[in-house]
């Protein structure tokens, strides 16, 4: 059950804009998620603050360039560095995305969608096992937002995630905003997606904002969370029980206090959802 996984509470993404404030004010944030690649360096300010913050808060490592579904061989040097960073800061878990971000020859630095086919499934599952062997821990994979899908799809995205978790033992980072964005873009029901994921595999949730262009939605991570995503989040927690929740903001950084206020909102809505869950149990 989801409850048997550690519940870290409500966290924020660690961004250099906020390092000093975090150390000076010890804000009421339960944990921080760090972008792994930002700390795969040999020295300097980022590592200095990372070490200091790791002494005070639980951390989770979130990568963006594993390219688990890519057409290339896995980058063993990168994996080794991820492992070393994990040894250094002892994160509660290590995550990346169910996507590919590197092509045949070049790094593409985007979270590109995979066709949900049997071929992709076996390709990704084998690579997840390879990564887990190096990291010696389960890999946590996040669903991404997408803007096209392949005609060759043999599964829905949630069926694919189920099968992948089953085949590889990976766990899931459910980004509620990404589900919402993709549901609008592809015309599926967001709750059907979430309801059909394996609850016992869901280790973490993401909340974020997006840009709504009317006909489509773009996952920009530079806005506050919107109401339909808050609703979906509450429904998700009511269904799953407590799951560590992270509020993501990757651009247009507001004053730290604004993020804390938004995090309090997650906390309150989360508490209400969990209370409803216990009443109905």
């Amino acid at each position: 059950m989801a409850m048997s996984l550690p519940f870290l509470g409500y966290g924020l993404g660690l961004r250099n804009e906020y390092y000093e404030q975090i150390l000076e004010q010890s804000p009421a944030v339960d944990w921080f998620e760090v972008i792994s690649e930002n700390y795969l360096v040999q020295g300097g300010k980022a590592l200095y603050y990372l070490d200091a913050i790791a002494e005070r808060y639980p951390l989770v490592m979130h990568g963006v360039s594993l390219s688990i579904g890519g057409p290339h061989a896995l980058d063993t040097d990168y994996l080794k560095q991820i492992r070393q960073l994990a040894e250094r800061i002892q994160p509660a878990w290590v995550s990346d995305h169910l996507c590919w971000s590197r092509g045949s020859a070049h790094q593409l630095h985007d979270l590109l969608p995979l066709p949900y086919t049997e071929e992709s499934l076996y390709h990704v599952a084998a690579r997840v096992r390879q990564v887990q062997d190096v990291l010696e821990r389960p890999l946590v994979l996040e669903n991404v937002s997408s803007y096209v899908r392949s005609k060759a799809d043999e599964f829905t995205e949630w069926e694919f995630l189920n099968a992948l978790a089953h085949l590889s033992g990976c766990q899931l980072l459910l980004d509620v905003n990404n589900v919402y964005v993709s549901s609008r873009n592809h015309g599926f029901d967001a709750w059907t997606f979430i309801r059909n994921l394996p609850p016992q595999s869901i280790r973490q949730l993401h909340l974020a904002g997006h840009m709504d262009y009317g006909d489509y939605v773009v996952d920009t991570h530079d806005h506050p969370v919107c109401d339909p995503v808050w609703d979906l989040y509450q429904q998700t927690l009511e269904h799953l029980g407590p799951v560590s929740t992270l509020l993501e903001r990757d651009d247009h950084f507001p004053p730290f206090e604004e993020l804390l206020t938004e995090l309090s909102k997650a906390r309150e809505l989360g508490a209400m959802a969990l209370a409803r869950r216990s009443l109905c149990a």
Binding site: H109, L112, Y147, V148, S150, N185, H186, D215, Y216, V218
Partner: peptide
């Protein structure tokens, strides 16, 4: 483009343009 599907109000060309713009503007 013929291997792809769009959504109810997002056509394939727009979807592909989103990826194309995101790639270059991120860099």
């Amino acid at each position: 483009a013929a291997t792809l599907l769009g959504g109810p109000t997002l056509d394939v060309d727009t979807g592909l343009a989103i990826y194309h713009n995101a790639y270059i503007s991120r860099l």
